[in-house]
């Protein structure tokens, strides 16, 4: 299991290289990457603030929970903070398991949880000023199925 909270950019392909490799008991690797999306057409940067200490703890306990619920061989979570460019990767999760169902479900679980339980806050920076991104009710509701 690897949890990274970092300001530095990361390379999705590089991170996946070697993930779940070199062992015979893994039949499925699922990964999800979130990129900085520009909905308004005016986004200059996305700023991500976090709560150092609690962020790492909540991501670890979330990954730990996933390992408890599904038979996972490995879990990777990377989440960036600081100022990010449009189109840049913000975060990624990857799961490795014997079969694909566990890998898919665990990846979705991790995404749902870290969207509304990990202490990150996004702020959009445009030429007109800055605005905090509001949390969506649908993200909170997504937790109910787990």
């Amino acid at each position: 299991m690897r949890i990274c909270v970092q300001s530095e950019p990361f390379n999705i392909a590089k991170e996946l290289q070697g993930f779940g490799a070199g062992r015979g008991d893994i039949g499925a690797v699922v990964s999800f990457s979130g990129l900085v999306r520009d909905d308004s057409g005016h986004l200059q940067m996305l700023e991500v603030e976090h709560y150092p200490g609690m962020t790492e703890k909540s991501l670890s306990s979330c990954a730990q929970e996933a390992v408890t619920r599904w038979e996972l061989a490995d879990v990777l979570v990377i989440h960036r903070f600081g100022r990010l460019q449009v189109g840049a990767p913000i975060m990624m999760v990857a799961t490795a398991a014997r079969h694909r169902n566990a890998a898919f479900e665990a990846a979705e679980f991790l995404m749902d949880y870290l969207k509304s339980r990990a202490p990150f806050w996004k702020r959009e920076i445009t030429a007109q000023g800055t605005q905090w991104v509001a949390a969506k009710d649908s993200d909170e509701a997504a937790l109910a199925r787990w």
């Binding site: 709560y51 975060m91 870290l114 969207k115 509304s116 990990a118 996004k122 509001a134 909170e140």
Partner: peptide, 10 residues
């Protein structure tokens, strides 16, 4: 004790 808005990670 920390106070903050609902989180918007991911």
């Amino acid at each position: 004790v920390a106070f903050f808005p609902p989180m918007t990670g991911g």
